[in-house]
Design a protein around this nucleic acid. Structure first.
Length: 943
RNA sequence: GCGGGUAUGGCGGAAUUGGCAGACGCGCUAGACUUAGGAUCUAGUGGGGCAACCCUUGCAGGUUCAACUCCUGUUACCCGCACCA
């Protein structure tokens, strides 16, 4: 621990005093806006993961400023929400004070890193001056009919005593405490986010998000195209409407399923004969947690509704209606048409409840030919349970290994045909039927008959009962041409090559729904079609024409549940009046402040703690002046973070949320860094919020963010997540104390690919400390001269180029390694010039700002680096006049030769042939060709 | 199950985008200077072989004069979503 600490303090003070990092709102320079997601100031303090992204963006911001930009790089605090509240409850202090305390420690930690943040724009989402505008914007949503109150079955965490959004309770457990989540019915404020589903997908085209973030968002929004189909219900005058993406399978519908909560049940409970059974099923489903209910692989349950019968609108067939919890009320219409032959879930359900399964799509194998003859056929697989082997028919050169197969004529039943063929071909007499397959549509060309065939083939599996045999009855062309062999499953997988036979075998062993494409059968108007999209379109058109259904797009994205029954959030600025209903608080009365109270702990009733503060709740109606009550719910902590990036543009404006001038000047957030865990939720909320503001004319851009990047996590030294319980959490304060802020910053940039997760290594950090020590030591070689040393000139220009490009591509690890290479060269020199050192320090400054400024000052190399400009390279000085290149013989390096830049191809060839080791490899051999890639490589191909 | 990603020495990772695989750092080995070294400096360091050479980018194929890089298949791990009809 040298004087690093004093150096760091000195320069941090200098930056603060000179205000060099304060962004100007009225600058003629080009603007650039960098932002790292603002931290949640938790009691745990700063994590080394924060250091990684903060340093990275700080480096970019510092470089951009030196390149002449007016850079906005602000920081603030996201301090509403449950964690702060929990912390406060635990430590028996008011959340307000807890937040103040945490921000203080957090801020001093962040400051010790020496970031070039414009602290003049700092704010916290919990500042009344800030949340006034969050409330104001909520009222805009309300005014435009985008906020509504609805009774919702919400996810309720009994431990945190709080309602959770779907996003906060994914997997059926509370994100915060891990407790499993229950269902509770509650009146909730909702924002109509699902209205924006399409725009949120389309808007991605106007962003430069990484592809994986775009796809994550698209998947989250979950667009699906299909149709709604109206099924008449026989007993009542009502249609049961379902949503399906596969209207083409309508002829295969054999039952329907509605969600347990489906209102049709309540509407017609008088018609339902087994109502008590249904009620108890509903009870059971309700008591299940969302987690249990959505467990995949659990066996399906359900009850047939006795008294309501569906009618397939296209076949007029009567089909049963079930209730089952595998259908969700909150997606589609809460009711489905079930096609067990082509949907795995429906298949499972139908198998369990013995519901008929009608295939309407035939799997296609083989290749189509012209002039095909049609045949019906079977493939029969005989299984011997004693040996667990299957009987194969080995045709050797005449067709390879197959199973028993045969053609059946029109009158013959497929099962009879299969039995007959087994007896005739194999002689086995005693076996029993196990199962059959859906038919396969197979195409092949028979060379012996010079004829192409299209066959519909059903597969059968039989169990062998005993070994008793009769003599085979073979046709002439079969006699003596095959042998029978028992083979196990693996041998069959390897040896049966015929597509029809192997597919049939697989389908027999594992019978399930066929979800692939194929040829339509049993489907009247669709019969024979093989193109899925065409079938879907034809059926949808038919439905629309006959008023039986309509095209429909669905999204998984739901409306945003915007209420929390908690104390520590922005109060929702609405007042309920018995006469006027929900009335917004007048703009001049904003913000609605959180009252100062002693008790802010959550209640068992699920009511916000605010509800018990009567003199806060009781107020007058802003419209009619009568007695009225305030809304006691607060906003989720995603609210404040949905627009904070706009506020930095004009952080202390008390007239507007941001001035239009500031919005116009700063425009989009150019470069936004944050964790992958926010790829869907925060980013979607923020985009939705901003698109709404755009639509009502309050912001100039529909998409608020241009580029989005994500840093990889920093793991503990074993490659496992850092956690308190494992005791492998690294505290940045300790690292700064031991190695200095610059070394810590340098190490975190050098540690690896910025986007990938990496394991922490304190030895690696120590290596960076050594590097910085060497940077300081090499300063002792500085002489009185300017300009670059002749011996270093080329490398310096190359390094400027490489480092400049690598910063721009966020390849910080190779920035550091390039600088290490340059330093290694400098150390080899007797002395170095002022400019040599100065350019090195400038290139290193974005990563190690303190020590580079100090060294620059110590040797009087020029003005402070933060005020100077980024170095440029001279491309003419980068070109090597001589170069070592490899010579390969047959692709293997045999020698290296030195070439001049202006050597002709022939000269290079000559040099290559001359090289000693090349001679050894080409003598007595014929040179087929010689490839010369100028300045790169020579490859001599010999025979 | 669906979607996305990753795989290179003992370790973290480079590779001009198809052109000498292993830059740079850590660690390790030997030596120097030292009362001392967890400081610093010098040399070495993918594996095999005395050597010429051979092998090597998860695995198996393919394209090419040339593949970590492109194509096909496959395995393992990580992340997100998940009965979404």
């Amino acid at each position: 621990m040298s004087n690093y600490k004093e150096i760091e303090k000195k320069w941090q003070k200098y930056w603060e005093d000179t205000k060099v990092f304060e962004a100007k709102n009225n600058s003629s320079k080009k603007k650039y806006y960098y932002l790292v997601e603002f931290p949640y100031p938790s009691g745990a303090g700063l994590h080394v993961g924060h250091v990684r992204s903060y340093t990275a963006l700080d480096a970019l911001a510092r470089k951009k400023r030196m390149m002449g930009y007016n850079v906005l790089f602000p920081m603030g605090w996201d301090a509403f929400g449950a964690p702060a509240e929990q912390y406060a409850i635990k430590n028996h202090i008011h959340p307000k004070d807890a937040v103040k305390e945490n921000i203080k420690t957090f801020k001093s930690q962040v400051k010790s890193l020496g970031l070039s943040i414009d602290w003049s724009r700092e704010f916290s989402t919990t500042d009344p001056e800030y949340y006034k505008w969050t409330q104001w914007q909520f009222l805009k949503f309300f005014e435009h009919g985008m906020a509504y109150k609805a009774k919702k079955n919400i996810n309720w965490c009994p431990n945190c005593k709080m309602g959770l959004s779907n996003e906060d309770s994914s997997g059926g457990v509370c994100e915060r405490c891990g407790h499993s989540v229950e269902q509770r019915e509650k009146e909730q404020w909702m924002l109509r986010m699902s209205d924006y589903a399409e725009d949120l997908i389309k808007g991605l085209d106007d962003t430069n998000f990484m592809d994986r973030i775009k796809t994550a968002q698209i998947n989250w929004i979950g667009k699906s195209e299909g149709a709604e189909v109206d099924f008449k219900v026989k007993e009542v005058d009502e249609c049961l409407t379902v949503y399906t993406t596969r209207p083409d399978t309508l002829y295969g519908v054999t039952f329907m399923v509605v969600a347990p909560e489906h209102p049709i049940i309540d509407r017609h409970s008088d018609k339902i004969k087994n109502m008590s059974e249904i009620v108890s099923y509903r009870e059971m489903a309700k008591n299940k947690t969302e987690f249990e209910r959505t467990q995949v692989n659990k066996t399906k349950t359900g009850v047939c509704i006795d008294g309501l019968t569906g009618i397939n609108p296209i076949t007029n067939q009567e089909i049963p209606i079930y209730i089952s919890d595998y259908v969700m009320m909150n997606y589609g219409t809460g009711a489905i048409m079930a096609v067990p032959a082509h949907d795995e879930r429906d298949f499972e359900f139908a198998t369990k409840y013995n519901i008929p399964i009608i295939p309407v799509i035939e799997q296609i194998t083989g290749e189509k030919h012209d002039n095909e003859k049609k045949k019906n056929s079977i493939v029969a697989v005989l299984w011997d349970p004693k040996t667990d082997k299957y009987l194969t028919v080995n045709w050797k050169d005449l067709g390879g290994r197959l199973f028993v197969g045969g053609t059946r004529n029109e009158e013959e039943d497929a099962l009879d045909c299969a039995k007959r063929e087994i007896i005739e071909e194999t002689g086995y007499l005693h076996f029993e039927y196990v199962r059959d397959t859906f038919p396969i549509n197979h195409h092949y060309y028979a060379y012996n008959k010079k004829q192409a065939y299209e066959i519909d083939c059903t597969g059968f599996l039989f169990r062998l009962l005993d070994d008793e045999k009769t003599s085979q009855q073979l046709d002439e062309d079969e006699e003596g041409n095959f042998i029978l062999e028992w083979k196990d499953k693996n041998e069959i997988e390897n040896e049966v090559k015929d597509e029809l036979h192997i597919t049939t075998f697989r389908n027999l062993l594992h019978k399930t729904a066929y979800t692939g494409d194929g040829k339509m059968i049993h489907s009247d108007i669709l019969n024979g079609l093989t193109n899925k999209l065409e079938s879907i379109k034809k059926m949808t058109d038919y439905l629309e024409k006959n008023k039986l259904g309509r095209k429909k797009v669905n999204y998984k994205l739901q409306d945003w549940i915007f209420s929390r029954q908690r104390f520590w959030g922005e109060p929702i600025p609405l007042i309920y009046c018995d006469d006027c209903g929900w009335v917004p608080v007048k703009e001049e009365d904003l913000p609605v402040l959180l009252p100062d109270v002693a008790n802010y702990e959550p209640t068992d009733t699920g009511e916000s703690p605010l509800a018990s503060i009567t003199d806060w709740v009781n107020t007058t109606c802003p419209k009619c002046g009568k007695k009225a009550k305030r809304e006691t719910d607060t906003m989720p902590n995603w609210a404040g973070s949905s627009w904070y990036f706009l506020r930095y543009m004009d952080a202390h404006n008390d007239k507007e949320f941001v001035s239009q001038d500031a919005l116009k000047y700063w425009g989009k957030l150019d470069f936004y860094n944050g964790g992958m865990e926010h790829a869907t939720r925060h980013l979607l909320y923020a985009r939705f919020w901003n698109q709404f503001l755009y639509n009502i004319g309050l912001v100039p851009n529909k998409e608020p963010i241009d580029t989005r990047v994500s840093h990889g996590m920093i793991l503990g030294s074993g490659g496992v997540k850092m956690s308190k319980s494992l005791g492998n959490v690294v505290n940045p304060d300790d690292m700064i104390e031991l190695y200095g802020a610059d070394a810590l910053r340098c190490y975190e940039m050098f540690i690896g690919d910025y986007e990938k997760e990496v394991a922490w290594s304190e030895q690696g950090l120590n290596g960076c400390k050594r590097f910085i020590d060497r940077v300081v030591r090499v300063g002792e070689k500085v002489n009185n001269q300017t300009n670059y040393s002749k011996s270093l000139e080329k490398l310096i220009h190359k390094t400027i180029k490489k480092v400049t490009e690598d910063y721009d591509q966020m390849k910080f690890n190779t920035v550091v390694s390039s600088l290490m290479i340059l330093l290694n060269e400098m150390e080899k020199q007797q002395e170095i010039t002022k400019d040599d050192y100065r350019v090195f320090l400038t290139l290193f400054n974005p990563i190690a700002p303190h020590i580079t400024e100090e060294e620059n000052e110590k040797y009087h190399l020029g003005e402070a680096i933060c005020k100077s400009t980024w170095p440029e390279y001279d491309s003419t000085k980068i070109i090597d006049d001589q170069k070592e290149i490899a010579v390969q013989v047959n692709g293997k390096v045999r020698a290296t030769i030195t070439i001049n830049v202006d050597d002709s191809e022939d000269e290079i060839k000559a040099k290559a042939y001359e090289a000693e080791n090349v001679q050894n490899h080409i003598k007595n051999k014929e040179i087929v060709k010689t490839i010369v890639i100028k300045g790169k490589i020579v490859n001599i191909v010999v025979k």
